[in-house]
Write a protein that binds this DNA or RNA. Sequence first.
RNA 1: GCGCCGUUAGCUCAAUUGGCAGAGCAUCUGACUCUUAAUCAGGAGGUUGGAGGUUCGAUUCCUCCACGGCGCACCA
Length: 570
Amino acid sequence: MHASPPRGLEVSHRIISERVARLELIKQKGVEPYPTKFSVTHTAAAVLEAFESLEKDQAAVAVAGRLLSKRGHGKASFGHILDRSGKLQAYFREDVLGPEGYELFGLLDVGDIIGVTGPVFRTRTGEVTVKAESVTLLSKSLRPLPEKWHGLKDVETRYRQRYVDLIVNTEVRRQFVLRSRIVSTIRRFLDSRGFIEVETPILQPLYGGAFARPFVTRHEALDMQLYLRIADELYLKRLLVGGLDRVYEIGKDFRNEGIDRTHNPEFTQLEVYQAYADYQDIMDLVEEMLVEVVTEVHGGTKCKYGEHELDFARPWKRVSYFGALKEAVGADLTGSSDEEVRALCVKLGMDVEAIATGKKPGAETGRAGAVQGGERGGQRAEARGVAQDGGGGAGGPVGGGGPGGAGWGRTMVRGRLLDELFSEKAQPNLIQPTFVYDYPKEVSPLAKDKGGSPGIVERFEPIVAGLEVGNAFSEQNDPLEQARQFDLQAQARADGALEVQPKDTDYLRALEYGMAPAGGLGLGIDRIVMILTDARTIRDVVLFPQLRAEALREEDEREDEGGSTPDAGA
RNA sequence: GCGCCGUUAGCUCAAUUGGCAGAGCAUCUGACUCUUAAUCAGGAGGUUGGAGGUUCGAUUCCUCCACGGCGCACCA
C-alpha cells in the first residue's frame, strides 16, 4: 500500500468484482453467504491429534476456517483450511457432495471462511484429510489474499493490514500468541505470590513518574485538560500507602516522543511494588519471573536472540554500575570528580562539550533504544531535569516548541558524562542477562540512598542483549526528601525543561502518611517480547504499530466497484 | 526534525548505457475423481506512488510532494 492507490485498484477491482459476481450467484441459489453460526467439533490441530481414533470410528468431524488453497481435479478437489490451531486438508468429491454441493464448492474462493463436516482419512501421500460430506459457506471473502508461496512481505502493508499479515504469515501469528502467553505467565507468577493486579488512571490531571512529554487531551464535561499517563508509578505507590502491600499493573504508557525500532508512542509496561522489600529482593523477583516466562515459551532457560544464545538461568551476572564501567573503560570512577570523568571522556575521544551542553551530535544512542518499556518511572530522567540549568526549550511544561534539549547544568555534567560512558562503552557488552546495580544518585532521585555509600542509590537495571529491559530500586519513602526533589524539578521546569513532571502535591501528601519501605520495578513488556521472540523491531511485537495516516480512497473504490461486472463465474 | 535508501500487475520480483514494461503465483476460459508450489492448454490484467521538469523518447535523469525502511536527533 503506497500513498496513492491508483491503477492497481483497477486490477484488484476486477478481482473483487469477480468475487462479488460469485457472491450474487450464491445468493441466487438460495444460500446465505453470511450465516450466523457453525458448530465446530474439532480444531485442525485436534483432528491431527486424535486422528487414529477418529479414523477407526469413522466419526464425522466439523471443522471451520479460512480456505487457503484450492486444487481442482475436475470432479474432485483438495484444499487447506486454516483455523486458530493451524491448517488441515479437506477433500471434496462431487459424488459425495452431490452436483449441487459440488457446484457451490466451485463458487468458493480462496480466502472464504467455510465449515466442513465429514470423516477423516489419510491420503495416498499420507496427509490427514477431512473427506467433506458437507460444505458450508460461513463468510464470503471479496479480496484476494497475497501469494501463497512468497506470502506478504511489504512491511508497510503488514503493519497497516495486520489482519492479512496474520492470515498468511504463520510466524507472525505464532509471535503474537507467544506474546499473550508471556503476559499471562507474568500474571500467574505475580498472582501466585500474593500480588494483586490493579488499574490506575490513564487519564491524569497531572502526569508524572517519568521524564517525558505527554499526550494532551481534554475532558469536555469537566472542562479540563488531561494527560495520557507516562508511567503508573506515583499512583501505585499511593496504593502502598493505602496498605495494598503487593500490587502490580500491566498497561499502556504513552510518551510523546520519537518513533524508532525500539519505541512506539504507546507501549506496555509492567510495574510491580512490594512492601517490606528492597532492590535485592526485586532482583530475585525478576530472575525468578523471567526464568518462569522463558521456560513457558521456550521449554528451558535458553533463548536465541539474533547472533546470541541467551541463558536466563539463575543466578544472573550482577555487576555494579561503576564495576561495569571500570570493566569497559579501565578506570574506576567511583567517587570521581567532575574533572576526572571529563578528562577520561576527552581521552576516549568523546565530544565532552557537546554532551555537556546537550548538543552532542550522534551520541546518547545506547540509552535511547534501551529503555522503551524498560525504564520505569524515569528516575534518571527526573534527575536530568533537575540538573538542567540552562539552555534549552522555553515555554510551558508541555508542548512547548523546543526540542527540550536544554543544556546540562554544570552540576550535572558528571552524571551526564557517566551515563554517556555507560551507554556507549559498558551496556553494549552486556549480552547475557545481567543486573547492573548501584547507580549514581545524580541520575536517580526517586531511589533511596545506599547506606554508607555517599552519592550512590539502591537501584538496578536488568540488561539483556545489550538492552535495558527494566528499572528498579528501593523506593524513596522519605516525604521530606521527596519534596526536596520535587522542588528541584520545579526549578528545572521553570528553567524550561519540558519533560520534567509537575510537582505532585497529592503524592507528597500520601507519602506524609507514611509508606512502608518497598522495592519497585518497571519492566518493558514489548522489549521482553522482542527478546523472547527474536524480533528486531518493536513493530513486530505490537499488533498495530503507530504509522502515519494512510491515503485511503475508500469512496473512489466504492464507486469503481459499482461499475463493470466481469463475466466471471457466470 | 535531519540524512540515506525504497515505492513497477492482487502478491513476490525483473527490466542492458534513457529506446515497444516482463516473469512466477493469483485471477479468467477449457481438460482432469488421492492432489499438495497439482498438472496441461489458452486468455486477460500496467498512465511504473503523485505532480512538475529535461529529452525526439523517461520505470530509468532532475525538482517538489506522499508513504515506508534504516540511521541520527529527541526520548523511555
